[in-house]
Nucleic acid binder design. Structure first.
Lengths: 152, 152
DNA sequence: TATTGTTATACTCTATAACTATA
DNA sequence: TATAGTTATAGAGTATAACAATA
């Protein structure tokens, strides 16, 4: 036996399937479908802002794993679509705070509902405790992965 | 209560975290780290070919969710690196079959082992039946998602 | 005429470099 | 001098269009 058990191999196989381009594209399409002014490129900015709250472009960029120059450009698109606004930081003349407008909040909520409905549908024929255990497992798994990532 | 339960919302939240760019990049780096001649761009072609077996560029492209023109170009890179070869199709003069070389097979195996080791590590402090249940759940979940996708 | 592989081209995403204003 | 935001630029990925060869 090698160090890598069959469980690890099964995990990499299924996660590999999950991460293939066609799947990601499918999920992003479902996510932004019918949400005006948002696409797969700008959604991470919108969603990240909803997650961390009002923030500077630099801080938001770090949170979503994107360069600050890309972040500010996508923020401009969302601003043009009326989904976020820029407000000057009163305590630092250099800084600008990005924050969602009411329509931006609504757009995020709609996108999340659409994705949640899809997953709800997928889990519909699972036993309730089974589905609950699985989602809890996902939360634990992703959190552990994030920690490993941030640890370097 | 809306149609979207909190479990669906929890699922979309955690999968959203999993799919963020920084996480995907991290996984792809781990995946191809130290595997010569393969990067995040060409890996899907290599891996897809391992999954479906020898195939034409057109068929492989459909399997990995990539355009056939991109597929054939990335295949050329992998060919130059000695990881796959092109063989003419005896029954159809237009077609070319892509197939992994021995080194290509070894590269895929190495990449998969690297990713499996990471996941193994993440799951190491889970109870064994818990980890097993979770991976089985993932397999069921991803399969259901793929079916929904292919259904349209 | 349709399809396969391939190349030419154009578009988008994203990072690095450069610029301006403020600390 | 360093940092925030922004814009200019360049490199990479990927699709559409075009082409040659074969069905």
């Amino acid at each position: 036996m090698t160090r890598v058990s069959s469980l690890g191999m099964r995990a990499q196989a299924v996660i590999g399937r999950f991460l293939v381009r066609s799947n990601r594209t499918y999920l992003y399409e479902r996510l932004v479908d019918g949400v005006n002014g948002v696409d797969a490129t700008t959604y991470p900015v919108l969603s990240g802002l909803a997650r961390v709250g009002p923030a500077s472009a630099t801080r938001l960029a770090a949170a979503i794993g994107l360069d600050r120059t890309a972040t500010t450009r996508y923020a401009s698109r969302l601003e043009a679509a009326g989904l976020l606004r820029r407000v000057p930081d009163a305590r630092d003349g250099r800084a600008t705070t990005l924050e969602l407008t009411a329509r931006g909040e609504a757009a995020v909520a709609a996108a999340r509902r659409a994705l949640a409905a899809l997953f709800e549908d997928v889990l519909a024929d699972w036993g309730e405790p089974e589905a609950e255990r699985f989602v809890a497992g996902l939360e634990r798994f992703v959190t552990a992965l994030e920690q490993r990532h941030h640890a370097g």
